[in-house]
């Protein structure tokens, strides 16, 4: 299991200079291995759904704002829009990017890894709950069909919750919030790839989905997409009746499909 995690990190991390991301940046064609079709395929769906706001080439934009491998945390000039995802060339698991492009799978990569770790455990015939610091997949005992109670942490006060999700076995929950990975006036890690600027309207999101990868990626997409107003688009993209909770300037919201309770 550790080997699985280490390999994933080596392949996909933007925070190391010996991995695939560095070679892609130099314009090389890189084989990203067996995870690539599924992970990049998910990004295809998210990119289309969000009209390009979610784009795995957002890494350069994050660096421009100072969220780089060295954590310089000083913006270097104006925000930088990501190269169009359509400019990437794919062939199976290989990828070629325009030189200088910085791959960043931060939107869905962690959830993807949660699923991968769960798969390792499930392959041994054991059940598990994988909790990657709040991005979690429930593969626990199904005999009593007990949902897992998960507090939705208040973005401004970690001792409080804005709601509780009742996570059924076989489901995954991921959250995203802009409060902690933030480093200056209105600077945080959830960028709109189209202009390279941090999301402004939404502060925190949670999504329950059939996999942690989907929940993680959708949690990012909801910073740019109201799931109620875009329910039809979500359904067309393969995510009907999305279970979501989000906090924006007008308060706390949940879709009617959300299983649990919100305190607002």
């Amino acid at each position: 299991m550790t080997a699985r995690v280490v390999e994933f990190d080596r392949t996909w991390s933007r925070f190391r200079d010996d991995g695939a991301v560095a070679r892609l940046r130099a314009g090389e064609t890189v084989d990203l291995g067996p995870d690539a079709p599924a992970l990049l395929g998910l990004y295809d769906r998210l990119e289309a759904l969000s009209d390009g706001a979610v784009n795995p080439l957002v890494g350069g934009g994050l660096e421009a704002l100072g969220y780089d491998a060295g954590y310089s945390l000083r913006p270097m000039g104006a925000p930088v829009a990501a190269p169009a995802w359509s400019s990437a060339r794919r062939d199976g698991s290989t990828l070629t990017l325009p030189e200088g492009s910085v791959l960043d799978v931060g939107a869905a990569g962690k959830g993807f890894l949660v699923d991968a770790v769960a798969a390792v455990v499930l392959a041994t015939g054991q059940q598990c709950v994988v909790d990657a610091s709040g991005d979690l997949a429930h593969h626990g005992p199904t005999s009593d069909a007990a949902p897992l109670g998960v507090a939705l942490e208040h973005p401004a006060d970690p001792s409080r919750a804005v709601g509780v999700a009742e996570l059924a076995p076989g489901r995954a929950l991921c959250g995203s919030a802009t409060n902690r990975r933030a480093w200056g006036q209105d600077l945080h890690h959830v960028l709109d790839a189209r202009d390279g600027r941090p999301a402004r309207d939404v502060v925190a999101t949670w999504v329950v989905a059939g996999s942690a990868a989907e929940a993680d990626g959708l949690a990012t997409a909801l910073f740019f997409l109201d799931p109620v107003g875009n329910a039809d688009r979500l359904a067309a993209a393969g995510w009907p009746d999305l279970e979501a909770v989000w906090l924006d300037a007008t308060g706390l919201h949940a879709t009617s499909s959300f299983t649990g309770e919100v305190f607002a």
């Binding site: 709950v129 909790d131 990657a132 610091s133 709040g134 991005d135 979690l136 897992l148 109670g149 998960v150 507090a151 939705l152 942490e153 208040h154 973005p155 401004a156 006060d157 970690p158 001792s159 409080r160 919750a161 804005v162 509780v164 999700a165 929950l173 991921c174 959250g175 995203s176 919030a177 802009t178 409060n179 902690r180 990975r181 933030a182 502060v203 925190a204 949670w206 906090l247 300037a249 007008t250 308060g251 706390l252 305190f263 607002a264």
Partner: peptide, 30 residues
């Protein structure tokens, strides 16, 4: 930042103490 967000959002959404909830896990910014 927590202070800043607290000013903007905590006014609107107070929430419930996690200690007072019967939950197994917590999900938030990680």
């Amino acid at each position: 930042f927590q202070t800043k967000f607290a000013g903007g959002i905590a006014d609107k959404v107070v929430g419930v103490k996690i200690d007072d909830l019967n939950v197994s896990k917590v999900s938030g910014s990680s």
